[in-house]
Amino acid sequence: MAPTAIECQALEVVFANRGNKQTILDGLDLTVPAGQIVTLLGPSGCGKSTLLRVVAGLTKPTSGSLCIEGKSVRENQHKLAFVFQESALLPWRSVYQNVRLPWEIRKAPAGFDLDSEIQNVLELVGFKPNDWNKKPHQLSGGMKMRASIARALITKPDILLLDEPFAALDDMLRSKLNDLLLKIVEQTHTTMLFVTHNIAEAIYLSHSIAVFSQGKIGERIDVDLPTPRQASVRSTPEFAAMYGRVSESLARNASA
């Protein structure tokens, strides 16, 4: 049994807006084992992004408990990295400088060779050296997202939180970047909590899918497809069966 990376118990998030109370998370429990990719799946506005922000320490839960590797978020926030829906690169910085940013804010450990680390991570996400000095506006959507992932990886996070990172990209590009994520997990053993509303993406990427229902996890579905995933798995009957099962669960939980 792998150690637990993220443990949420009875999480509740209530937003009060001019006396109107809106419950976003309603006693949510979620466990994410270390080294796994877990997908949060649900329709838009169901609270999955809020959960991600709570895990990241960006939104305070109204009640409930949250542990990151057995400690509070505040203590372990440095072990997390967040990939935003838009690439969120700083437009005045080059790709290289954007990836460098986290270590300009944090204190780099002694003996940390930042330049070679940046080069490694940029190569890992598929950047050619002559693109390193480009500004974000000179990059395509896919390259921006690669740079954004590189920036998240540069701090060697134990846990990567991704909030619909590929929602704005076309299908071809989306599956390329899905493969990139799988490659990263294989090489770095990073735990990932991935938010999406794309069922095929959820199945292809994850070890396990958490389907949202009314501010809680309605169903947890383990994806028992062979790992490491090959692109060809998408055309197998097992994948199709899994697709059917997940979309049925999604429909059931959305209407619950």
């Binding site: 959507g141 896919g142 921006k144």
Partner: peptide
């Protein structure tokens, strides 16, 4: 200081 123009195609 150009802002994101956000074109989509990957190379």
């Amino acid at each position: 200081w150009t802002i994101d123009t956000g074109f989509e195609s990957d190379r």
